[in-house]
C-alpha cells in the first residue's frame, strides 16, 4: 500500500524544495496576497484544461503564468491600489472557474480535491512534471538570486546599479506560476501560498542570512510535507490541510524556541 504514497511524497518534496526560496522572497517582498491570487486563478486553469482537453498541469501553468504577466502589467497603473486589483482578479478567477466547472455537466471533477489537495490523485506523470520544473527552476533561481535580493532591498538602487529589474521580476513571477501549477494536486488551490509562506516565516526565527532562511524553509517544507502526507495517509484527512497544519505547528514551535533563546540570551 505504501507504494501509492510515493508519487505524492516525491512530488511534495520537490515542491517544498522550490517553495523555500520562492516563498522566502514572497515574505520579504510582501507578496502573500499576490501568491494567493495566482493560486486561485489555477481553478480557471483546470477549467481551461478540461474544456480544451489539455493536460491539467499545462492548463494551470498557462493560466497562472498569464495572470502573473497581467498583474505585472497592471501594477504599472496607479489608479487602483494593487491589493484591490489582486482582490478583483483573485476572487474573479476563482468564481469564474467554479461556475464553468459547475455548468459543464460532462465533466466530473473532485472540487474539494482541487481546493484542498488529494494525495491519491498524484500519479507518476505528476512526479515527472515536478522533476522537470525542478531541473529548470533551481538553476534559474540560482541565477536570479542575487539580483532579486537587490531588487527586494531597493528597486531603484538595484536599477541604478545595473540590474534589469523588470526582467528579473518577471522571471520570479513565472517561477511562482509554475510551482503553483505543479503543487495544486497535492496542497490544493487554497493552500499553496501557505506551503510557500509558513516554512519561510518559521525559518526566519533561525536565520541570520537570506540563504539560511531560504534553505531552512526548504528543509522545513520537506519535513512538513512528509509529516503531513503521512498523517493524511493514516487518518484519511485531506492532504493539503494536513501539510499546512504541520507547518503551522512547526512555525509555533520555532517561534517559542526563539523566544526562549532570546530570554536566555538577555538574562
Amino acid at each position: 500500500m505504501i507504494e501509492m504514497l510515493w508519487p505524492a511524497l516525491l512530488a511534495g518534496t520537490g515542491i517544498a524544495l522550490l517553495a523555500g526560496p520562492l516563498g522566502s522572497f514572497m515574505v520579504w517582498r510582501r507578496m502573500a496576497y499576490f501568491g494567493d491570487t495566482m493560486a486561485h486563478s489555477g481553478l480557471l486553469g483546470v477549467t481551461l484544461a478540461v474544456v480544451l482537453n489539455l493536460n491539467l498541469t499545462v492548463g494551470i501553468a498557462l493560466v497562472t503564468t498569464a495572470l502573473a504577466l497581467l498583474l505585472f502589467g497592471l501594477q504599472r497603473q496607479r489608479r487602483l491600489p494593487s491589493d484591490t486589483l489582486l482582490g478583483i482578479l483573485s476572487h474573479g478567477s476563482l468564481a469564474i472557474g467554479m461556475l464553468v466547472l459547475a455548468f459543464s455537466e460532462s465533466v466530473r471533477i473532485d472540487l474539494s480535491g482541487l481546493l484542498f489537495g488529494d494525495l491519491l490523485a498524484v500519479n507518476r506523470g505528476d512526479v515527472l512534471w515536478v522533476a522537470a520544473i525542478l531541473v529548470v527552476a533551481l538553476p534559474v533561481m540560482a541565477v536570479i538570486w542575487r539580483p532579486l535580493l537587490a531588487i527586494t532591498v531597493h528597486e531603484d538602487l538595484a536599477r541604478a546599479e545595473g540590474i534589469a529589474t523588470e526582467r528579473i521580476r518577471i522571471v520570479y513571477l513565472i517561477l511562482i506560476a509554475l510551482v503553483i501549477a505543479v503543487a495544486m494536486k497535492i496542497v490544493g488551490i487554497l493552500l499553496i501560498t501557505a506551503l510557500m509562506i509558513i516554512p519561510a516565516a518559521a525559518a526566519r526565527w533561525l536565520s541570520k542570512t537570506p540563504e539560511q532562511m531560504a534553505l531552512g524553509a526548504s528543509v522545513l517544507g520537506v519535513i512538513c510535507v512528509w509529516a503531513g502526507l503521512g498523517g493524511s495517509w493514516l487518518t484519511n484527512a485531506p492532504s493539503g490541510p494536513a501539510i499546512v497544519v504541520t507547518a503551522v505547528i512547526a512555525f509555533a514551535v520555532l517561534l517559542a524556541v526563539s523566544q526562549v533563546r532570546q530570554r536566555l540570551a538577555n538574562r
Binding site: W28, T152, A201, R204, T209, P210
Partner: peptide
Amino acid sequence: IDDSLPLS
C-alpha cells in the same frame, strides 16, 4: 528594509 529579511 523589511524585518523579515535577515541581512547584515
